[in-house]
């Protein structure tokens, strides 16, 4: 045995010596250096589980880009930490446009209020290509409950539980602000995304939930859920009968929007290619029907305007959270 082990070690070390001189290890299959972008399949990370609006939007954009640019744009789900994990994938990638992501505003404007300093994802670490669409939150309850407005909740005479789509999300902020500023006794119950929160609400496991409009609208329309409020500046096109929180006397304005990001330092021509292909996608009937179907309001603005919006929203949310003494980090 020992002899074998020794000769084995000898083989291994000679092999290692002989080979350590060699370099040039590559990780790709085809020649992808130089040439036009995109020269190979592009990975689009999405920081949410499949089925939610973030995922669907990424897939819709990916389909459009694939058609416009000829290479496959494949969507990879890397859920967790409100998208910070997917963001990290993009942040760490080579700035060549082969790893990109449609990211959520909440990760940059809201999540920083909920996590430790060193876990904050900063928009400065990315290049923002351009905006995609706005997705409004809606406060819903199971239709079996008697409540029709935020005021009804005040008189519920019990602690209201509200499902959120996770810690540090816009849904949580919208609900928390509503209940705090309305002085309603409440308890947050975080779920891993919109779909499980919706399922729990449909089963009346939680009293209310803040969801993205697209996630809830089907069940609002078929009467299983009652919409109590939206959090947009004015009533939204898809739910014209639902009053805003402002109308109901609460200063709560929270919404989600999404935009295309690339790693910091991506060449301008690559970003231009992506943006042009995105704008071409926005023009297609398919895409517009998709927006309609998922209750998304187009927000197809250039990258620098997205960054401005992010900065001002971040400040506004921070002020509100301070004013009402809301601790998003501690979910309960």
């Amino acid at each position: 045995m020992r002899k074998q082990t020794l000769s084995l070690a000898a083989v291994a070390s000679t092999a290692a010596l002989a080979l350590s001189a060699c370099g040039g290890v590559s990780t790709t299959t085809g020649g992808d250096d130089g040439g036009e972008y995109p020269s190979r399949s592009v990975e689009m990370y999405v920081g949410a589980d499949p089925g939610g609006s973030s995922d669907l939007i990424s897939r819709q954009i990916a389909t459009g880009l694939t058609e416009e640019l000829g290479e496959t744009f494949s969507v990879l789900n890397r859920s967790g930490s409100n998208g910070a994990l997917a963001a990290a994938e993009v942040q760490q990638a080579e700035p060549d446009g082969n790893v990109i992501s449609v990211q959520n505003a909440s990760l940059f404007a809201i999540t920083p209020l909920a996590v430790a300093e060193d876990e904050v994802t900063n928009i400065d670490d990315f290049d923002v290509v351009g905006g995609v669409s706005r997705d409004d939150y809606v406060l819903v309850t199971n239709a079996e409950n008697p409540w029709k407005s935020i005021d009804d909740l005040k008189g519920a005479g019990k602690k209201i539980t509200y499902g959120t789509t996770g810690v540090g999300t816009g849904a949580q902020l919208a609900c928390a602000l509503t209940y705090e500023s309305g002085a309603i006794d409440s308890e947050a119950v975080p779920f891993d995304g919109g779909a499980p929160a919706l399922t729990a609400l449909l089963g009346n496991q939680v009293d209310t939930a803040c969801l993205q409009t697209g996630e809830a609208i089907e069940n609002i329309e078929n009467g299983k859920l009652t919409a109590l409020s939206v959090f947009a500046p004015e009533r939204i096109e898809f739910l014209p009968d639902v009053p805003t929180a402002t109308e109901q006397g609460l200063d709560v304005e929270v919404y989600q929007y999404r935009f295309m990001t690339t790693p910091k330092g991506t060449p301008q021509d690559v970003k231009d290619t992506i943006w042009e292909a995105m704008q071409a996608t926005f023009e297609t009937e398919d895409y517009q029907a998709f927006n309609e179907q998922n209750s998304l309001t187009p927000m197809e603005i250039p990258g620098d305007e997205v960054v401005d919006a992010l900065e001002s929203d971040k400040q506004r949310y921070a002020d509100l959270v301070e004013e009402y003494d809301i601790d998003l980090g501690d979910a309960s």
């Binding site: 060699c22 040039g24 290890v25 590559s26 990780t27 790709t28 299959t29």
Partner: peptide, 8 residues
Amino acid sequence: LRIPLPHL
């Protein structure tokens, strides 16, 4: 499978 494995 076209999996990017480091190769020499």
